[in-house]
Design a protein around this nucleic acid. Structure first.
Lengths: 174, 174
DNA sequence: ACGTCGATATTCACATTCGAAGCACTTCTG
DNA sequence: CAGAAGTGCTTCGAATGTGAATATCGACGT
């Protein structure tokens, strides 16, 4: 895959293309495999796993607001509403109105949710270790993280989009 | 997010967790932004863009078999059938029976498809450059590719799954 | 206090994807 | 060559995710 030729100024060089494709493909494949493993071993989606992990491992109280979860796990509010519904039906989480803010909803992991999470974690880790880390040395892993974390910060900081600032277009005609 | 505590043996160390999450989050965010940009600028999906790029830039003849495309772009045959249908309806590709193999189908990019691709490429590159490459030096880019490509090879080589080889289970009692 | 604006969550219609089943053709085997 | 097994693609049903529209509530200025 080469975007070459007619776009000289805008082109990405070969190393950039390789890095870009490798990144996207590795992540997509890894996610696909992880998803399979979770489905078979614990009947969970990757998204559901992330929700449970966030609630059960990172939150002292075991609960978080819908919005906060949505921003981390999915790219739309409605997507989380759907998943929260599914997981509530399955008894993995509970929804309750926020005490401070009457329009807020707080999601809390249940005991069953914690159990499911505990059941899922080892297999999940196993897949990640096998697929992602067997070919990487300890130094590689450190380097990879060091390379990607600034990128992540940059992405989170940059505005979602709108107004692609085309260089010195004094007045966009129509 | 820490998978720590009760899974000592199976745990991932901190550097591994950070690399794993950074990788997944960077890829997910990048894909989301790219998808937005493509949608707005050229009314294409990421998947559709990949199909057009593969056909229009990598293939001398501008055509490939369904299966080949499916393996690269999506994780199921039916998924590609759907997209091929959409793109054919939009006039971006054509489907014709394979000469060698009467059950095979060959997808070919049309002139309109090439035009759409040409229209989409610069903006796509712009987003990738801005989001992924502004914080990386030339050396970083090389390192990232060098780190990830072996991983990709490893993943593609390892069997999709089935029979999780549990160490020395002499006979699976079914 | 009132009205406006922004934020929160949900509902709805729609698009995309997957897996299983089915069809048509090819290849292998006897 | 005939039957069996395998391939390539499509159809179908179900699951998931998104954005737009909606309803409710909080914050703020007048």
């Amino acid at each position: 895959m080469t975007f070459a030729e007619p776009y000289s100024e805008l082109d990405l060089d070969d190393a950039q293309l390789r890095a870009y494709f490798a990144l996207m493909d590795v992540a997509a494949l890894l996610r696909h495999r992880v998803e399979q493993q979770l489905r078979e071993a614990s009947d969970l989606t990757y998204v559901q796993f992330k929700v449970l992990a966030r609630l059960g491992l990172d939150s002292p109280t075991g609960s978080l607001r819908m919005t906060e979860l949505a921003d981390e796990v999915v790219y739309s509010r409605s997507g989380l509403t759907y998943q929260a519904g599914q997981m509530e039906k399955a008894g993995l989480v509970e929804r309750s109105p926020s005490p401070d803010d009457d329009r807020g909803v707080i999601v809390t992991i249940t005991e069953a949710g914690r159990a499911r999470l505990a059941k899922a974690v080892p297999g999940h880790i196993e897949v990640v270790r096998e697929l992602l880390f067997t070919t990487l040395t300890g130094a590689d892993v450190g380097a990879l993280g060091a390379l990607l974390e600034p990128v992540l910060d940059h992405m989170r900081a940059s505005p979602p989009r709108s107004a692609t600032p085309r260089r010195k277009s004094s007045a966009p005609q129509a």
